Computed example of a mutant assay.
Amino acid sequence: MEWFRYEIQAAKPLVDTSAPPVYSHLHLKLGKLKLEEDRLSIIERDNHLLLEKVSSIMRTKGQIDNKNDYKAKSLNGEKRKQELRRVNRRTAPFWIELQNPSLSIKFSDGMRIGNKLKNTWPTLQDILVGGLNHRAER
């Protein structure tokens, strides 16, 4: 029986229950450390710039630096001006004829001028369907 006890005490386990080996390149994670270092350097740089701005404001009067003096630009402004000039050129003789007090305009002459003017001005349907030049080409 003594022999049996000795064999049991000297027996080794068949399953390895020890911890696996630790590899330093997997444990240290240098890439993650590099990203963290880069992030901290960006934060430090931004803090330094902010400190410079705050100290500049404290040294001076603290004026504002956001000037809003830009001009609003329309993308179709030139086209609208060109269309207005074209319409004014076409209707100028009619307006001169209507506004000249030395001319005596009879009712039939007024109707003739009104019909000419009516044919030169585009209607809303003309603008929606064919653009401004649709009716002017008649």
Score class of each variant (00 low, 15 high):
Thr91Ala: 02
Glu97Phe: 02
Gly114Phe: 10
Leu84Asn: 10
Thr123Gln: 08
Thr60Trp: 00
Val129Asn: 11
Lys106Thr: 15
Leu103Lys: 07
Phe4Val: 14
Gly62Ala: 02
Lys53Pro: 00
Glu44His: 15
Leu98Phe: 04
Ile57Asp: 13
Leu30Lys: 02
Arg86Asp: 09
Glu36Gln: 14
Arg39Pro: 02
Gly62Glu: 00
Ala10Cys: 11
Gly77Ile: 09
Leu28Lys: 06
Ala92Trp: 05
Arg5Val: 12
Leu128Gln: 14
Ser18Glu: 06
Glu7Ser: 07
Pro13Val: 12
Lys79Ser: 06
Pro93Ser: 11
Trp121Glu: 00
Arg89Trp: 04
Ser18Trp: 01
Glu36Met: 01
Glu36His: 09
Leu124Pro: 01
Lys71Pro: 01
Leu103Gly: 00
Ile8Leu: 15
Lys118Tyr: 09
Val129Tyr: 10
Lys12Pro: 05
Phe94Trp: 02
Gln9Ser: 13
Arg45Trp: 11
Glu2Val: 06
Val87Ala: 07
Gln63Glu: 14
Ser74Asp: 14
Ala10Glu: 10
Lys71Ile: 03
Glu97Tyr: 08
Gly114Val: 10
His134Ala: 15
Ser41Ala: 15
Leu33Pro: 08
Pro21Trp: 01
Ile105Val: 07
Leu26Met: 05
Lys73Ile: 01
Gln125Phe: 00
Asp16Ile: 03
Ser56Val: 04
Met58Asn: 12
Gln99Asn: 12
Asp65Cys: 05
Ser74Val: 07
Asn115Glu: 11
Pro13His: 12
Asn119Cys: 08
Asp109Cys: 07
Glu44Met: 04
Ser102Gln: 12
Asn68Ser: 05
Ala92Gln: 11
Arg5Lys: 09
Pro122Ser: 04
Glu137Val: 12
Ile64Asn: 10
His48Arg: 13
Tyr6His: 11
Ile43Cys: 06
Thr91Pro: 08
Leu49Ser: 09
Arg45Lys: 15
Gly31Phe: 12
Asn100Thr: 03
Asp38Lys: 10
Glu2Met: 04
Ile8Pro: 07
Glu83Pro: 02
Pro101Ala: 03
Thr91Gly: 02
Tyr70Trp: 09
Asp69Ile: 01
Ile42Gly: 07
Gln99Arg: 08
His134Val: 13
Ile113Lys: 04
Leu30Gln: 03
Gly77Gln: 06
Gly130Asp: 00
Glu83Trp: 08
Asn119His: 09
Asn133Lys: 13
Leu30His: 01
Ala136Phe: 12
Ala19Glu: 12
Leu49Asp: 04
Asp65Ala: 05
Gly31Ile: 10
Ile42Gln: 14
Arg86Ile: 14
Val129His: 09
Pro20Gln: 14
Thr91Asp: 06
Asp16Pro: 00
Lys79Val: 04
Arg5Gly: 09
Asp69Glu: 05
Gly110Ser: 15
Lys106Glu: 14
Lys73Met: 03
Asp69Met: 00
Gly62Leu: 00
Ala92Asn: 05
Pro13Tyr: 12
Gln9Tyr: 10
His134Trp: 06
Asn88Ser: 12
Met58Ala: 13
Val129Thr: 12
Gln125Met: 02
Asp16Leu: 03
Arg39Tyr: 03
Ser56Cys: 07
Met1Glu: 14
Arg39Asn: 07
Phe94Asn: 00
Arg80Cys: 01
Ser104Leu: 11
Lys61Leu: 13
Arg5Asn: 04
His25Arg: 09
Asn115Leu: 14
Arg59Met: 13
Arg85Asp: 08
Leu30Asn: 02
Glu52Ala: 03
Glu44Gln: 13
Tyr23Cys: 05
